[in-house]
């Protein structure tokens, strides 16, 4: 086996033709013009194969022999390593990694395996990995750590005046706080209820980290019955009990990690935006469903019609027309038809 290559000695961009071959004892023979040299396998580095790109055989003095016959170089590498096993041992790790990659990008079977592995891992990560990570983080972070985070968010919204002081009558606030206290005790969570006027956010309710639940004046005013608000509060306290905000953070971190691992930060960063947002959307729907189930369970146990939640949602939809789901409670919650009524 004789491989024709171009030798560049690394001093100038001039090359000369050489012929590479395997000599006895695991030595690389180079026929360079009229002279013949031999190098021990340990002194040469043979670049790994990348599809059909030219390969480089680097010698100890830094000169590089560039050849295009990839199959022949593979054979040369194997022959040298076999004849000089002691020298090949130090390269076992690098050669092993390269061989693994080569198995996957060599042919259609390798591509099929790679594709299956990639899709399988992505599926498993989104189905079980991210939720498990969320659970692990939820159990690792003590609940006391949540409170300042949520309070800071509320303070920040107060600061930028997205939140204004409530205009609700104190008696109305007190009666809702009493109802809130009942649900809180029933679900066994630590939480506070606050009221704010927030014109930009429409009829809305939030549960922030640490258990602060906020009702906007608009959602209190649009309710026709206190039980509708009880349903909303039970739903929000469901988020609080399951610490969904922390799970969301853990999961979006996991998604970012997966995407930076999959794509180099070039064009792909642009493309990566859409799929990651889709994933996040489906997670938050899962959380909504969980909160719905907790609310449903609370309402039935306390003799309240579970359809109260839907009554309110329908009224919100009707009140704000076609363009309303930009900011109201609807925007963060699935459409009415999808919510569990059974």
């Amino acid at each position: 086996m004789r491989i024709h290559a171009e030798l560049y000695d690394g001093s100038v961009t001039t090359g000369r033709p050489v012929v590479l071959s395997a000599a006895p004892g695991g030595r690389l023979r180079i026929e360079d013009g009229g002279t013949i040299r031999e190098h021990a396998y340990a002194e040469v580095r043979i670049a790994s194969r990348i599809a059909d790109t030219p390969r480089r055989v680097t010698l100890a003095d830094g000169s590089g022999c560039i050849a295009t016959d990839n199959d022949a170089i593979d054979a040369l590498d194997v022959a040298l390593a076999r004849a000089a096993p002691a020298q090949a041992r130090g390269r076992r790790f690098r050669r092993g990694v390269d061989r693994l990659a080569r198995l996957l990008d060599r042919d259609a079977l390798g591509v099929a395996v790679a594709l299956t592995v990639a899709v399988g891992i992505l599926f498993a990560a989104s189905r079980w990995g991210a939720p498990a990570l969320g659970t692990a983080i939820v159990s690792a972070v003590p609940p006391e750590a949540d409170a300042p985070i949520g309070q800071q968010l509320v303070d920040a919204l107060d600061q930028i005046r997205l939140f204004q002081p409530t205009a609700l009558a104190p008696e109305r606030q007190d009666s809702l706080r009493r109802a809130f206290g009942d649900i809180r005790g029933d679900l066994g969570v630590d939480a506070r209820l606050e009221f704010r006027q927030a014109k930009l956010l429409g009829p809305n309710a939030f549960a922030v980290a640490g258990g602060t639940v906020i009702l906007t004046d608009a959602i209190v005013e649009i309710a026709m019955h206190d039980e509708e608000l009880v349903a909303v509060l039970a739903h929000e306290l469901g988020h609080v009990r399951e610490r969904h905000w922390l799970r969301m953070v853990a999961q979006s971190a996991a998604i970012v990690v997966i995407w930076t691992a999959v794509t180099d930060p070039t064009l792909a960063t642009l493309a990566a935006v859409a799929p990651s947002q889709l994933l996040e959307l489906s997670y938050s729907r899962e959380f909504e469903r969980e909160a719905d189930e907790i609310a449903f369970d609370y309402l039935t146990r306390n003799g309240i019609r579970p359809t109260r939640l839907q009554d309110l949602l329908k009224r919100i939809t009707a009140s704000c027309g076609e363009h309303c789901d930009q900011a109201s409670w609807l925007s963060s919650h699935p459409p009415v038809e999808e919510r569990s009524g059974d």
Partner: peptide
């Protein structure tokens, strides 16, 4: 290039980056 890429993706995911 697709073959090189998908092998990279699979191995990067399988080794957690």
């Amino acid at each position: 290039y697709f073959r090189v890429w998908i092998a990279n993706v699979a191995l990067t995911l399988a080794t957690l980056g």
